[in-house]
Each structure stands twice: as C-alpha cells, then as structure tokens.
Computed example of a mutant assay.
Amino acid sequence: MHVQVILCQRRPATAPAITTVTAATPPEPQMPAPTAKPAESAEPAQPSGSAEPSESARPTDPAPPPAPSADVRMWHRFLALHAHVEHRLSTALQRHHGLGLSEYRALGFLAAAPRSELRMQELADRLGLNQSSVTRLVGRLNAAGFTYRDVCPDDKRGVYTVIEDAGRTRHAAATATYEATLTAALEEAAENDSGAGATVAALRSSLG
C-alpha cells in the first residue's frame, strides 16, 4: 500500500516593516560674517627738508605791557639805589666791626633812646622787623655783651632791651665807617646813573 505524503511548504512570515524615525537635527548657529576692517588712514607725508612755516601758522607775539607810570619808574630807581647802598654798608660794617646792618642800627636806636632802653616791640617797629626776627637779633647782641634784657617793674610782661657800655663803644667806632661808606655809595650811584644822581640831589636838598 502506497502512502502518499504531501509536503506542505510553509511560507516565511513577513516581518513587520520597521519605520526608522530620524530626529530633526537643529540647524547650526550661523556665525556673523566678519566685518571689513576700516582702512587705516595713511600717515601724512612728511615734507622733505626744513620748510619754513607759513605766516598764518606762526604764533603772534603777545602785546607789550603798558608803560609804567612816572611814579613807578621813580620808585624802581629808588629801590635800586637803596639796594646798592645797603649792600655796601652791610659789607663794610661786617668786615671792619663784626656787626650786621640791623645790629648797628639797633645799637644806635638804643643809644639815643631815653634811659638807653626800648621795648622789644618798639625796637622791632623802628628796625622794620617782625617780632621773631628782632628777638633773634637782640639775642645776638646780648650774647656779645652789647645789650641786656630787663623787665619793667610796673608790668612784668614788658621786656626791655638796654644798651651796655660795650655796645655804645662798638656803635661809636662803627659810625665813622657807616657814614663814610654811605657817602661813597651814594656818590658812586650818582656817577653811574644820572637818574640816581638826581634822586640823591633831591633828597639832600629836601633836608636843607
């Protein structure tokens, strides 16, 4: 007996289709386009040689100051005469007598004062010095033995400077040098400057 075997061929199952989902890629940021660098201005061409600046480029000269008045000119001339004479006197007194000009004059004011003494402020006023300067000056005179310090018996705050005999002697010896040097300095100034000579003549005539 024949057995017929029928072989059934199975079809392979169709695999389900796989849908591939592609994620959207964000767009890359766009870089700003480089801006063009402005062209550098060219250096101004240097002129060859040493060209003279034009008249319009030259600075104008400042206007001259107004001319001084007659009084100003007179005063300046007097100050120049005063400086010349004071320098000559100071040099002569220091060289021959060891005295400064203010020290010599302080001794003179004290020698001529009543009772040969002056308050410190009075002495400062006559010398044209401030209180500090006259204090130092009197300190030098005291150290040299030409003056001494005294206190007013009625007012303990009142300080006097009193001249000593040694101060009188030194002042008297220096007076001849002072007067001779003064006359020579005035004559010298008058010879070198006619204006100074006129000033000296006017001052001398005013004293009679």
Score class of each variant (00 low, 15 high):
residue 41 S to V: 14
residue 41 S to K: 14
residue 41 S to A: 15
residue 45 A to M: 09
residue 45 A to D: 14
residue 45 A to C: 02
residue 46 Q to E: 14
residue 47 P to R: 13
residue 47 P to N: 09
residue 49 G to F: 12
residue 49 G to I: 10
residue 49 G to L: 10
residue 49 G to W: 14
residue 50 S to G: 07
residue 51 A to L: 13
residue 54 S to F: 03
residue 55 E to R: 05
residue 56 S to N: 03
residue 57 A to Y: 00
residue 57 A to T: 02
residue 60 T to N: 01
residue 61 D to T: 03
residue 62 P to Y: 06
residue 62 P to C: 01
residue 62 P to K: 02
residue 64 P to R: 04
residue 64 P to W: 04
residue 64 P to L: 12
residue 65 P to I: 03
residue 65 P to V: 03
residue 66 P to T: 08
residue 66 P to R: 02
residue 67 A to G: 01
residue 68 P to Q: 02
residue 68 P to Y: 07
residue 69 S to W: 03
residue 69 S to H: 01
residue 69 S to V: 02
residue 69 S to N: 03
residue 70 A to T: 09
residue 71 D to F: 04
residue 72 V to Q: 09
residue 73 R to I: 05
residue 74 M to A: 09
residue 74 M to I: 01
residue 75 W to L: 11
residue 76 H to P: 00
residue 76 H to A: 07
residue 77 R to W: 00
residue 77 R to D: 12
residue 78 F to D: 03
residue 78 F to Y: 07
residue 79 L to F: 02
residue 81 L to E: 01
residue 82 H to P: 00
residue 82 H to R: 14
residue 84 H to I: 01
residue 85 V to D: 00
residue 86 E to S: 09
residue 86 E to Y: 01
residue 86 E to L: 03
residue 86 E to K: 06
residue 87 H to M: 03
residue 88 R to Y: 00
residue 89 L to Y: 00
residue 90 S to E: 14
residue 92 A to D: 05
residue 92 A to Q: 13
residue 93 L to E: 01
residue 93 L to F: 03
residue 94 Q to H: 12
residue 94 Q to F: 07
residue 94 Q to T: 10
residue 95 R to N: 06
residue 96 H to D: 13
residue 97 H to W: 04
residue 98 G to R: 10
residue 98 G to F: 06
residue 98 G to C: 04
residue 99 L to W: 06
residue 99 L to C: 05
residue 100 G to V: 05
residue 100 G to H: 07
residue 101 L to N: 08
residue 102 S to T: 12
residue 103 E to W: 02
residue 103 E to L: 02
residue 104 Y to A: 12
residue 104 Y to V: 01
residue 105 R to K: 12
residue 106 A to Q: 07
residue 106 A to F: 02
residue 107 L to M: 14
residue 107 L to F: 09
residue 108 G to E: 10
residue 108 G to M: 09
residue 108 G to Q: 11
residue 109 F to Q: 12
residue 109 F to G: 00
residue 109 F to L: 15
residue 110 L to N: 07
residue 110 L to V: 09
residue 110 L to Q: 06
residue 110 L to P: 07
residue 110 L to S: 07
residue 112 A to H: 13
residue 112 A to K: 14
residue 113 A to Y: 05
residue 114 P to H: 09
residue 115 R to C: 03
residue 115 R to V: 10
residue 117 E to N: 13
residue 117 E to G: 10
residue 119 R to D: 15
residue 119 R to N: 10
residue 119 R to I: 04
residue 120 M to S: 13
residue 121 Q to T: 15
residue 122 E to W: 01
residue 122 E to P: 00
residue 122 E to M: 08
residue 122 E to R: 13
residue 123 L to A: 04
residue 124 A to V: 09
residue 125 D to A: 15
residue 125 D to G: 13
residue 126 R to P: 04
residue 126 R to D: 14
residue 126 R to K: 15
residue 127 L to K: 10
residue 129 L to H: 13
residue 129 L to V: 11
residue 129 L to D: 11
residue 131 Q to L: 15
residue 132 S to Y: 12
residue 133 S to L: 13
residue 133 S to Q: 15
residue 133 S to I: 09
residue 135 T to W: 07
residue 135 T to M: 11
residue 136 R to Q: 14
residue 136 R to E: 11
residue 137 L to W: 11
residue 137 L to V: 08
